[in-house]
Design a protein around this nucleic acid. Sequence first.
RNA 1: GGGCCAAUAGCUCAGUCAGGUUGAGCGCUCGGCUGAUAACCGGGAGGUCCGCGGUUCAAAUCCGCGUUGGCCCA
Length: 1042
Amino acid sequence: MDEVDDQYTPGDVESAVETYWDDADAYEATKEAHADDPAFFFVDGPPYTSGQMHLGTAWNKTLKDAVIRHKRMTGHRVTDRPGYDMHGLPIEVKVEEELGFESKRDIEEYGMEAFIDECKRFAEENREAMDEDFQSIGVWMDWDDPYETISPEYMEAAWWAFQRVDERGLVEQGKRSVNYCPRCQTAIAANEVEYDEITSPSIYVKFPLREKEGSLVIWTTTPWTIPANTFVAVDGEMTYQAVRAEKGGEEEVLYVAEPCVEDVLKKGRYEDYEVVDEFSGEELVGWTYDNPLGPHLNEVADFEGAGEVYTADYVEADRTGLVHSAPGHGQEDFARGEELGLDVYVPVDGRGEFTADAGDYAGTFVRDANDDIIADLDESGALLASGEHDHRYGHCWRCDTDIIFLATDQWFITVTDIKDELLENIEETEWYPQWARDNRFRDFVSDAPDWNISRQRYWGIPLPIWQADDGEWIVVGTREELAERVDQDVDPDEIDLHRPSVDPLTITEDGKTYERVPDVFDVWIDSSVATWGTIDYPSETDAHDELWPADWIVEAHDQTRGWFWSQLGMGTAAVGQAPYEEVMMHGFVNDEDGRKMSKSLGNIVTPEEAIDRAGRDPLRAYLLSHDQQGVDLSFEWNGLGEMQSTLNIFWNVFRFPLPYMELDGYDPADADLDDGDLTVVDEWVLSRLQTVEAEAADAWENYEVSDALNAVLDFLTEDVSRFYVKAIRERMWEEEDSASKRGAYATLSTVLEETIRLLAPFTPYLAERMYQHLDGSATTVHALSYPEPDETLRNEELERNMAVLRDVEEAAANARQQGGRKLRWPVQRVVVASDDDEVADAVESLADLLAERVNARAIDVVGEFDELLERANPEMGVIGPAFGADAQKVMEAVQGKTRAEVESGIEVDGETYDLDDEMISYEAEPPAHISGADFEGGTVYVDTELTDEIEAEGYARDVIRRIQEMRKQLDLDVDSVIDTAVDVADDRIAEFVDRHRDVVAEETRTREFTTGDVGSEDEWALVEEWEVEDVRVTIGVGPVDA
RNA sequence: GGGCCAAUAGCUCAGUCAGGUUGAGCGCUCGGCUGAUAACCGGGAGGUCCGCGGUUCAAAUCCGCGUUGGCCCA
């Protein structure tokens, strides 16, 4: 890996470095180097093992990697165990698909154990692929030993935590109306429900009153919930009207909220109506009615309090103003039913099919019964109207089946009991960005309902709950405890905690037998204990005692509701505190239009493609150069290409001094700033380096990772490449050893070596490649320390002055361009006019450097440039009225005259006019041969007037340039010697070149320099004809044999 | 339907917390430099700072109402 390519080729750099890291055990050496440093407990948010790395996960892991590398370089022993989330419904669903299953019945037939083995195989295969993906972008984590949520130690961490929660009395069993996926046949968490637009039935139904004439009218989009109807809700404050409505010669009485009467009657196609009575909602309370499907059902909700009207705050003056309520199916209905002390009636089983209670509909999947129910309602005359309704409705995130609400037996962590504690614990954490905590997160936590943690599935951590017939339960916390308490023989070191092995175990205590609750944990429980699980607590305790809680975690903003929350909930419920101290939140990668990448839009860019096209370091730097705190990234190929170009500039800066140092036998690893003379540019660039190091340190401090990266990259392109390298080029070309050259070598070596370390966390391959070439005394650059500013090298005044010089230089280039004089040709003088003393002082202090850079014989600094000429500009608004028909001629005569000329009178057609002051305005302009350009602190004037001497030097420079070009074409070594002949077609110009023949010869390493006829082409290795300022110049070049 | 975030040059983004002449890179174009050379530098063109309203001497920035996109919730 020692040959330095002319071109920065990321692929070559990266594969060479990868091999080197493997051979040198660089990762291990890095950890070893920081083994005794203070701890930094990072916890990896475990990616789910059902997919592969995409740009979002690549960003996530790259950011983690950069921070870990930086923490190591600033002296920390970093916990870097990567993790994988390997349980859960998504994997079950994928395996079911592979095996062609349609329901839980297929799984039971296939065998639970075999199915779980398949899930495990699936998760592990994916995990291995993801291991490789993450390593392919240079992520240095402990890939030999990732934590897996399926390991016995990890599962035990969840059991242990859950036992703590139970001890605090925060575990509750109960019927709740939950989101239920009828295909997966399990409750799913609210955040596992996705919403989409669907079309549902929309029916208006008459519930006949028992003790009065007429019917209550309700509206619903779920006809299948009518068999479970338990009460009708009204708004106590609203006015309801009894309406006698007429259709087809028949009359009936309908009860509807007053604002809805007209709409309802129109829907029912009534021909006429009359309001016969009015009630407040309160007055309706207690009225009784019959379920209109009664004759079709074996059972209706007819227990104490059912079939009556109640108030509820979820009623609105929408549709009918009366709400059909079924606590067995609706969450609000459930909550209100509970308040009212009503039983929960559910004529639906776990497969989503009606039970025998539902009579005619028994055995039918609920939604499939909709049509029959509507038909039956219609037949009995209870259907007032029927149509369709488009609305957003939830479906299962994994299998897309529309969810139903079902009151089922579930287990909960009652986080609503510890709301205050949760909110207090949020205050203890620092978030980057802070608004994520104070707005998003706090809102979410405030609104969080009790956490349903039970799933009626297979591939997960089994609930460690054993329950007796009387409802009492025991929660087991560890494998050890399990072995001690269960009736069967269990080896705690051998047992696999997965189902079905734990299912048959029983506990007998105090004469009662407890059986295991067959559910598994919600998969969010798994990752919620990652801070314990990653250090194998409770089976190992040392690391936990030292490290816990986590110092820092980082994930994308979707995890506010996910991992950030689940960890806070579990940490607070189990041990009373948040398991992390600092949280960083990054964004998502969208496409270039800011749209989500998706298969259906066909706009997915894979990390592999990005690496193929640009490289790993460029991809990493590209991802890390954008805001890392809460904001999304619009991925764009051009941007990635730009980053590659930027790194290429770094590459060029890196390799630029190498040939010279090699010629001189200079070893950059031994660079010493005390050896050789430092010029003002050396001092300046070293000062800038310290400033950039301070900026980077500040940025890292606040996890402003992109600011740290961009500060260094800007320094490299703006200061080092654009300015410093240009400034020291001539010193590098000096053939003899010199103090000045050694100063430049030492400075550039220092800048490179420290910049490499500054960039190491971002572009680890490139940094390693450069470090190994320049120095290589350490096994790896990543084991070194991060550069810190040395205040003795910092000179803020010099930095300010140089900033002024650069402004002036830019303006001078502008003025030159206006004056048509290229930089290669010297100018007599450059005048800097400024009324700002600081600017003047800055320019004067750096006058020599400025003269060199703008190629001027002299630099003059003045307060005001007194050679300007004022040119007249006619004010036609005044001249027009004053001179009438002659105004046009006056204008032409005045235009561009000097003040003196105007004041001595303007002559038009032989007549002289005196003009008033207000007729003319003046603009100050430089005289001929001088062009000016403004900069922030004043104006720069460049005097481009030619003299023989300037012309002679200009042509000589042009000839030198051509000869150098030809040396390059001949691919000659930098130090090889040539013979040169130059034939200039114009005698005057030929003489100019001849004046500088010694300079030309020296600059081009020419031994024998001849002017005049070049002679036969055969005598030269290369003969070229050039046009220099319209003069033909023929040049012959031939290497001198050594 | 609700909460949060974003919208600035053709493109990607700074600037918004702390109100005071909108900036960079890329791209385009013209020019320059060059033994870093398939690199590099400068000039120019290019903006209703998403829209509307408000506060203020002054708004990209603060406030309100919308639009579009992203995340989350219902």
